[in-house]
């Protein structure tokens, strides 16, 4: 019994010594770190941290910076860069403006990607079968990979570029999912035919001219069921539309959903004018004649 007690006492003495040593060491290092943290403190602008917290932190690069943290630094240093964050939109811009105590001019309109083509594989003409590298850039280098020089190629360079899973290839046409699109412009840079454009979405659903074919009407008709033939019927209805180089263009910033633009849409002989947006109504099926009953 005594021997056991003596052993415990001895063990206690040894353990106690070790414990004291460890605590002493810990305290010393803690003191060193404390002094170092006070002496060597890096001054971080608290605003940068606040701005970074307000940003979406997805590092998409739409602002032109490498990621959200570098944009935060940039916007604090140069307030003119405010509003560059397209995924965050006006909400984030307002937050940043509040942090930097700036006044936000007008509430910015979110820009969203619009594919200027509505031709699915069955709507367009092909001269030959392409068996090369399945990439739009490679296919675009081969002339006449499809009859239309301006239409969507359907190999999905933009789908690969999208970080938000907002673009999908549906029957050979890049289709934007407006629930997910943040307007980061990655797809605009990826498209070799410059078909994707950032359109200011002043309304939930935007009316767009979904064609870029600058060929004459006759040739466009022979190549695609849903190409703009440059007839100018839409331009007669409202001055939102202008026809230039055989293709209708639309002033998106002035768009208001009114009777004239609706009529223009229904009069379009090939159905190129369509709605794009979160709850966009289905466009007229390809090749169908315009409905005359609608007034």
């Amino acid at each position: 019994m005594m021997t056991i007690l003596a052993e415990i006492t001895e063990l206690w003495q040894q353990a106690g010594l070790a414990a004291v040593t460890m605590v002493g060491l810990g305290a010393t290092f803690a003191l060193v770190l404390l002094i170092a943290s006070i002496k060597l403190k890096v001054q971080v602008d608290p605003k940068i941290e606040q701005v970074y917290e307000a940003l979406p932190k997805i590092d998409c690069g739409a602002c032109g910076f490498a990621g959200c943290s570098s944009y935060a630094k940039g916007v604090v240093a140069n307030p003119e860069l405010l509003g560059r964050c397209s995924p965050g939109g006006s909400e984030v811009a307002n937050k940043i403006a509040a942090i930097l105590s700036l006044s936000m001019g007008q509430s910015s309109v979110p820009a969203r990607a619009v594919v200027h083509c509505r031709s699915h594989t069955e709507d367009k003409e092909f001269y030959a079968s392409y068996t090369g590298i399945p990439s739009c850039t490679a296919a675009n280098a081969v002339a006449n990979v499809q009859a239309c020089k301006f239409g969507c190629l359907g190999f999905g360079d933009c789908v690969q570029a999208c970080k938000f899973d907002a673009l999908h290839m549906i029957d050979g046409l890049a289709t934007v999912d407006y629930e997910k699109c943040t307007g980061c412009t990655a797809c605009v840079k990826a498209c070799p035919r410059n078909l994707i454009e950032m359109v200011p979405f002043t309304h939930e659903n935007m009316m767009v001219v979904a064609c870029r074919s600058r060929e004459s009407g006759k040739i466009t008709r022979s190549m695609c069921k849903v190409g703009c033939i440059g007839c100018g019927l839409c331009a007669k209805q409202t001055d939102l539309f202008t026809v230039q180089d055989n293709v209708a263009r639309m002033a998106y910033d002035r768009y208001e959903p009114d009777q004239a633009s609706e009529t223009a849409m229904y009069k379009c002989p090939t159905g190129v004018i369509v709605f794009r947006g979160k709850n966009a109504p289905e466009p007229r099926p390809a090749g169908e004649k315009p409905q005359t009953a609608k007034t």
Binding site: G132, I133, S135, T137, A138, N140, A141, P192
Partner: peptide, 8 residues
Amino acid sequence: GYIKTGKI
């Protein structure tokens, strides 16, 4: 083909 694509 890939190298040509890269150049483009």
